[in-house]
């Protein structure tokens, strides 16, 4: 067990022949060989030198390979279309690595996806890894090790920092998932924590947040009443100056939510042990 993906996941890569897609597809396949196909419109019929068949459309790839997950590396302006294509082809788990996607596009994409039985992770995220079983995205596998700590984070390299610290302390991970920091995205902290809470392999949970938005506060409220597993957390941006505010409306909508202190307080109140340094996380889980 683990959450979201394991060795039985059948993954396709959208944008598999692009520079990013090619580089990371090789990394993913070398780690867990869960890739059953790739998609690049106009290049259907090719086979990559590492043996993965390329299709023109996600629909063809799904029919030919029985894929149930897709990871997206296409450029930002094509990413909303790529997500919709995967969803309409019946893919259940869509991970969008691409950063720089227009927010109004994501509002429409998310509103549509909410009508389907689809889990979107990202965009602008490092993806996920179930150590020893499945790597989907760009999290470096070399720092991970199988175990029982579930990790969910909004950032990329800061996530790696914490995974690295866990592994160095001998604490392996069930699944590590980076949900991305865009204003409108797919899976949020609450969704990931519910999954970890129900996953028998996951015994402890780590949550790495950032200033802005209210995802952390919402998840903390759930944790307080429903999660008995030990948890530790870190919020990045405590020293950040007040951001360049977007006129009056930015301040109005946040209404006191979204500050680092507010998040730390909410998470502490939920029983989550909060670290001053990300590298203190392993000690807080002991």
């Amino acid at each position: 067990m683990a959450i979201l993906a394991d060795r039985n996941t059948r993954l396709i890569v959208q944008g598999i022949t692009g520079r990013e897609g090619d580089f990371h597809a090789r990394q993913m396949q070398a780690y867990s060989s869960i890739i059953v196909g790739g998609v690049t419109p106009g290049k259907g019929g090719l086979k990559t030198d590492y043996g993965v068949p390329v299709f023109d459309t996600v629909g063809q790839a799904v029919r030919e390979t029985g894929a149930n997950a897709s990871v997206i590396y296409v450029p930002a302006r094509f990413a909303p279309d790529a997500i919709l294509e995967a969803a309409d082809a019946g893919i259940h788990l869509i991970i969008c690595i691409t950063e720089g996607v227009a927010v109004q596009d994501m509002i429409r994409v998310r509103a549509y996806l909410d009508t389907l039985d689809v889990i979107l992770i990202g965009p602008n995220c490092p993806g996920l890894i179930t150590p020893g079983q499945a790597k989907i995205g760009i999290i470096p596998a070399s720092i991970c090790k199988p175990g029982n700590v579930g990790l969910v984070s909004r950032s990329g390299t800061l996530t790696y920092e914490v995974i690295n610290a866990l592994t160095q302390s001998g604490m392996g991970q069930s699944t590590c998932v980076g949900i991305g920091g865009d204003p409108v995205h797919g899976l949020d902290f609450l969704d990931a924590i519910k999954l970890f809470n129900e996953d028998p392999q996951t015994e402890k949970i780590v949550m790495i947040g950032e200033i802005g938005g209210s995802d952390e506060e919402i998840a903390a409220a759930y944790v307080k009443d429903h999660v008995k597993k030990p948890m530790a957390g870190f919020i990045a941006g405590r020293a950040a100056p007040e951001g360049k505010r977007m006129g009056h409306a930015g301040a109005i909508i946040e209404g006191g939510m979204g500050t680092a202190q507010g998040k730390v307080t909410a998470m502490q109140a939920a029983g989550i042990k909060m670290a001053d340094l990300p590298t203190q996380i392993p000690d807080l889980l002991r």
Partner: peptide, 26 residues
């Protein structure tokens, strides 16, 4: 983003860059 202090930072990743600022303050 320009700030007022005297430690020039070069970090990869926005989250890690923010955490670096936090820890400099710490």
């Amino acid at each position: 983003i320009s700030l007022d202090g005297n430690i020039g930072c070069m970090v990869n990743g926005a989250g890690l860059a923010m955490a670096t600022m936090d820890i400099i303050h710490y």
